Amino acid sequence: MNAARQQQMLAGQTALARKVFQVVPIQQHWAALDIHRALQASKTSSAQFPAVRACLGDLKEQGLIYEPVNGHFQRAAATQKSRKEQTMSKSATQTVVSIKKTETGALDSLAALSGEMLLLADEFGQRMKAMSARIEEVALSVAAEQEGNAEALGKLKQLQALLKGIAQ
Rank of each mutant, 00 (worst) to 15 (best):
A3H: 06
A3V: 04
R5S: 08
R5A: 11
Q6G: 06
Q6R: 14
L10E: 06
A11P: 05
A11H: 15
K19N: 11
P25H: 02
I26Y: 13
I26K: 12
H29T: 14
W30G: 03
W30M: 08
A32C: 09
A32H: 13
A32G: 15
A32N: 07
L33C: 06
L33P: 05
D34T: 14
I35M: 01
I35G: 04
L39C: 02
S42D: 11
Q48P: 00
P50E: 11
P50A: 09
A54T: 04
C55E: 05
L56I: 04
G57L: 14
L59Q: 05
L59R: 13
K60A: 09
P68H: 04
V69W: 03
N70C: 08
F73V: 08
Q80H: 02
K81V: 00
Q86W: 01
M88D: 14
M88K: 08
S89P: 02
V96C: 00
S98W: 01
S98T: 07
L110A: 10
A111C: 01
L113F: 09
E116K: 15
A121P: 02
E123R: 15
G125K: 11
G125E: 15
K129A: 14
M131Q: 14
A133H: 03
A133N: 09
A133Y: 11
E137D: 07
S141G: 02
A143I: 02
A143E: 08
A144Q: 13
Q146C: 03
G148S: 09
A150F: 05
K155P: 01
K157A: 01
Q158F: 00
L159K: 11
Q160M: 10
A161P: 07
L162H: 09
I166H: 11
A167M: 05
Q168Y: 03
